[in-house]
Design a binder for these strands. Sequence first.
DNA 1: ACTAAAAATGTAATCAATTACATTTTAATT
DNA 2: AATTAAAATGTAATTGATTACATTTTTAGT
Lengths: 333, 333
Amino acid sequence: MATIRDVSKIAGVSVATVSRTISKPDKVSAKTRKIVEAAIIETDYKPDILARNFRTRKSSTIVVLVPDIANPFFSRVIRGIEQTAQGLGYAVLLGDTQGDRNREITYANMVKTSQADGIIQLDSHIPFENENGPYVPIVNICDCVRGTDIPTIEIDNALAAEKMTEYLISLGHKSIAIITGPVDATITQDRLRGYKKALKKAKIDFVPENISVGDYSLLSGTTSSHDLMQNTHPPSAIFCMNDEMAIGAITQLKKMGLRIPEDISVAGFDDISFAEYYDPPLTTVSQPAEEFGSKAMQTLYNIINKNDLIQKHTFLDFEIIIRKSTGPFKYET
Amino acid sequence: MATIRDVSKIAGVSVATVSRTISKPDKVSAKTRKIVEAAIIETDYKPDILARNFRTRKSSTIVVLVPDIANPFFSRVIRGIEQTAQGLGYAVLLGDTQGDRNREITYANMVKTSQADGIIQLDSHIPFENENGPYVPIVNICDCVRGTDIPTIEIDNALAAEKMTEYLISLGHKSIAIITGPVDATITQDRLRGYKKALKKAKIDFVPENISVGDYSLLSGTTSSHDLMQNTHPPSAIFCMNDEMAIGAITQLKKMGLRIPEDISVAGFDDISFAEYYDPPLTTVSQPAEEFGSKAMQTLYNIINKNDLIQKHTFLDFEIIIRKSTGPFKYET
DNA sequence: ACTAAAAATGTAATCAATTACATTTTAATT
DNA sequence: AATTAAAATGTAATTGATTACATTTTTAGT
């Protein structure tokens, strides 16, 4: 493999000139630039990225921390990150944490050791043992921690849940259950807040038994919905904090002989691609997954390169998608 | 940040001894090892990975080339890769190619420049301009090229398709359509071969119009199935080369007023998590997604580290999962 | 106690780029 | 043509760990 020194010899210039030809061509006269470029081609020179990274203390690599890559919403976000990263000349290191804090820290240390230039975290947890460590460029998206000055990108989860709940109320539902995500997640708390707010505005009493904690899996949708139907006053509508749980719930409710939406309404969250193709097509909250990814990468890029145009807290638009899994409340006959 | 020199000063030994304490502790006496370890803790020394990578020409990073990360089957494979990679001390660079050959080459060059130590390719395409370039550790999985000595990991796709087709034939179906993946993919050709073989064994004539080319998307399942139903002799069963297309097909067929499986049977491929939760639950071919990933990573690790125990061509087990989307053929009434 | 072999440790070169600073060349102005 | 500023180029230090080779210390055997 040819080195910069080989090129400089062939071109009859110094290594500095070769280096400049590559990284700041306008600092080199047109004549020598041509000579050097010819020498680069002749020697088939490819800069040694490892040496460059070592010297410049940059890796042009970022880490994505994701609770679970196999989650269809997250994988779309990551696709958005990856596409934008490619455009900006960054590589994406995948950090599937499976919720494990130690793995988060392992990946965070890759930034501290310059193996990566920054982190995009999709979970509401900051992977630093303590806050007074070295500065680490990080963007927190989708599910964001509060009370730090770390840039965040999210939708207004409380409002989205409020709107969806209002919609269900507008259909005549009074007993609306909710299947949540893990209790310690910010989005769970936000959405629960929005749900309660909508109930309050409609003067519907909040019933604790209408809450079931899930874990975003299909299975937890089935078990949670099963549990909810055992309540003394079973719900006539179930709002799930993601589409998988909604699909799990519908599967279970159908198995119990209930018709969707005639007997019970089910709404989801995320609008994954399957939502539209489910039977019945799922009423859900659409989130701009790819935009989350591209915005996050763009913001992280600005942080790394110290552009001042960083918006600390960005809110993206959501949309209530009304399909066929929700319908008017009907009194029992 | 403390360097190895700081540690050596504190410990009163040479940098070589510190380096050895870290990488080959058995080459260092117990006494000095203790001293050095204490100094490492005192200085909070973390080896500079960039310097190490530069010097050793290794990055402990591998690249995963995937046609689309948002495909649920692929994301499970990647999860398997990532888990195993973590255990082996490797980081995973995500290369979402969207089928773009240039992107594949870009990522392949990262290996040539030592930014990554090897590649796991999930597509039947080898990303080298020509074969006589530098040696690149690579493993080809799921959809594999033929006629090279690159290690592959796959299921026997022809056999799987043959078995599924045989199953549909055993239900009495004679007009069995197939929705394929892209024509140039090895798995498409393999599965098509298995499909034809089963037809031939059952003495059923192969009808070209029963083939519709899809692209693995939900939408292509709907359009392909719609097209197939316009045939002069519409099929009584449709075998789709992945579950998304099967789900798209079922959605479309239901829209056309057909009942699944009473009026028409639909089978998929992959057994993604949604398959079991669909209505009706999908008959499909189960592939061991995570095992693909972990086997691939293990094999790549062996290649990189020149262990000789490399099995060139590995075949994993598949399983025909019979659920409710397929049923006996019934003559039109 | 002496010697040889083995183990432990140290010295200093090395990896290939970038870049601060020094020097030379070119351009502009009078 | 002389002077000065600006542009272009060159020199050589620098980055931090690894490791070949040299040297010292320890161990074992007599």
